[in-house]
Write a protein that binds this DNA or RNA. Sequence first.
RNA 1: GCGGGGAUAGCCAAGCCAGGCCAAAGGCGCAGGACUUAAGAUCCUGUUACGUAGGUAUUCGCGGGUUCGAAUCCCGUUCCCCGCACCA
Length: 920
Amino acid sequence: MEYNFTSVEKKWQDFWRENKTYKTEIDPDRPKYYVLDMFPYPSGAGLHVGHPLGYIASDIYSRYKKQKGFNVLHPMGYDAYGLPAEQYAIQTGQHPAITTERNIQRYREQLDKIGFSFDWDREVRTCDPRYYKWTQWTFIQLFEHYFDRKENKARPVKDLIARFERSGNLGLEAACDLQEEFTAVAWMKMTEKEKQDILMKYRLAYLSDTMVNWCPRLGTVLANDEVKEGFSVRGGYPVEKKTMKQWSLRITAYADRLLEGLDTIDWSESLKEIQKNWIGRSEGATIFFPVKGHEIALEVFTTRPDTIFGSTFMVIAPEHEWVEKITTPEFNNEVKAYVKKASARSERERLSEVKTVSGQFTGAYCEHPFTGDPLPIYIADYVLAGYGTGAIMAVPAHDSRDYAFAKHFALPIVEVVSGGNIEEESYDAKEGTLVNSDFINGMDVPTAIRTVNQRLEAKGIGKMRINFRLRDAIFSRQRYWGEPFPVYYKDGIPYMMDESMLPLELPEVDKYLPTESGEPPLARAQNWKTEEGHPIETNTMPGFAGSSAYYIRYMDPKNDRVLVSTEAINYWQDVDLYIGGSEHATGHLIYARFWNKFLFDIGVSVKQEPFKKLINQGMIQGRSNFVYRVKGSNKFVSYNLRKQYDTMPIHVDVNIVSHDVLDIEAFRNWNPEFKNAEFILEDGKYICGWEIEKMSKSFHNVVNPDDLIEKYGADTLRLYEMFLGPLEQAKPWDTNGIEGVFRFIRKLWRLYHNRENQFEVSDEKPNADELKVLHKTIKKVSEDIERFSFNTAVSSFMICVNELSDLKCNKREILSPLAILVSSFAPHIAEELWALMGNNESVVNAQFPEWKEEYIAEDMVLYPVSFNGKTRFKVELPAGSTPKEVEDAILKMDDAQKWLQGKSPRKVIVVPGKIVNVVV
RNA sequence: GCGGGGAUAGCCAAGCCAGGCCAAAGGCGCAGGACUUAAGAUCCUGUUACGUAGGUAUUCGCGGGUUCGAAUCCCGUUCCCCGCACCA
């Protein structure tokens, strides 16, 4: 046994823990650097090799930054509330806190084995009352603030009340759900209930009846980002639309700031794009179309007011509030039937029937605001109740959906923008000249839009409007395992608890299920009321509540007076580098940005954006192996022979396959079914097939880091995870190949040891070759780490160690900096070598070496000489030679004469220090 | 449909932004050899084709172009992956 990684790694992990090597404090003398990982939900399955990928990358960067002189904050914690623990609790009666605690222990053990440089003294858990006290506190602040559109920031509700007392809401520009205006006098006359109802429409955290995503199987509502294609992201259960009284956060107030902020942060283009789409800003106008025979006007939203003269009918969503009101008696039955059919269809069905045109005429007509023409009003489910006003003016000539609808119902199609062929299809482009359009004829589209908008505003029948796709975030969940709301109800009006009551701790319940009357599990809690006897809110907060400001809490995790001290936030400021998966693009990463902006507005946070730079690590996919069973037998045929039989591929545990060769004994023991299996081999081996799939238990392709650490050590695992490929790229995990980095580790060890495995490093002065190897490695590795190209950095280490081995170099002046260089990638072996070289302090605190160009530069240049662009031979010449000297020297050579074949060169191109090309 | 990222040798993957030591780093796999009683470990050599070799020819998805010179720049084209999408 030469390098005993098991004992060395254990030794240093103990050392780091005992000496609190990674403890971080505020240090005004050093610049700060904050490296954050997305904290994990501790699931029962533990970590697989895909999970630590990002943590390893951030750990390398943290260690590197520290050696570069930064004071690095690198914390870790747990997103501990979540559905799996609760589902488990429902099944088994086991308290989710117990399951969660056990899972956290397991995670911690696994994380510790990989040798991370986390400052565990800063650990946070979202389910810890000392932590969620501040989640509740922030919720109260959200409740106590509204959004002032003029100042474009949150302001206290008490200011709003003062304003109402002074002048009502006349002329107030604030984000709210209230259309009506009222005066100060009217305000003063209102009852407490009426006042609270009004204020609720302004608060950033508010209670309202909203259309929610209800998931019956999970027994809770879900936010939009928790639903995908009509199914819950967690569990994959069907989701339906339902109106319920729910807490929401007025994130839409921040839509513009969330959008603008994207330009100021260093995130990947794709991630920014996803957020942009999710926010979905579109500029347009709302226009009122009077309904014939009624005193009302239908309000529509359009981004193309220029096409108003091409509008030939109106469409409203089946859920539109006026459907019943405007439907004429003769169409009553049909309309009712259509509405019923539409509402019965699940979200899933609606989406899958996108291509089928359906709708129903209501019998009612609108009047065109400019021409006065009658426009029939239809209901159709291609118009969504939740977007814009839930009503559109249909312009079939210039909108493909309206076009399909018009064709189906034989409605007129009027061209108003030239440039397309509306006989064939709608012309949706914004290029062309307006025709058939009265006062905007002859204009281009942008001019026409402006002109129509002006006319609409002047006539008071419409106004410019910016619309967002982003919806307010529904903030209540009908579940047990989450933060309780610090809210009680008095006379049916919700009030916030006093800050001194926080944290409001999660109560015990007898069962983790809703009550018989359908109330959330917290309704089962004994005495779930205030001292005065007022009932407490029974909903709990969603997953994103606890994860929205955890990065701030890490700065000052134990403070029980404030969320974060001024000193801590002023020093640590924001996250410099955030690494995590892109699946959080429309969830956590939007909410956290919103939450931070709010905290910024109320003076807690000091930066508009929480995460300066963000890297999405690519997903690690699984690489599955297959055996081929001959149908109807217990015989298995090797991969390349399988075509000669009628076979069925069966997933086989990748852990009993090495380089696609099956361990037959292990296979027999793997499953009793295969105990007596027979094999048809090739070359005496059973070769397995393979495929790239998701890493999942059901595919038997899950690779556990613990197993690899046991076999190869944590340093090898760390290096191999990085060596696999570019950090941001998705890639399959393939354990084949790990031997390569394992060999590298042992080869590194041997540089510092003699044949008898005794430590032996010489104090001799290094020669130019050795210095060159070292310095070009320092340069390459530094540059690679700076641009997060960890896979190429590992290659550079391999090259360096190979070259030093060839040079038989064991000189301290080379090997000492080399130990520092590799320490961020392979900290255990680096610590050991560093200590063997006589250092008393951890290599963590060493200074990262600087490269010197003088050692890298060459005296001689090896010029490749090409003829007509084809390299033919190489010549070594002094580095300082002029092009003329180079040309002369080369043309004199025999090799050159051979290629010239007696001809004289037409042209000789000399690129100093690089290459010579002779054109014949 | 909109947006983003790709295609390099048996496999993974550098190189492309700043064209030239590029038959193309590094690793895996494979083949041969050294050491060993043997296995393992380690080391060396080879791994597009032909040739013992010097070398020669043909390669970086495909087609064209620019250039003394193209994996790298430009134009076109095919295929793959990943987001978003009845949002008016």
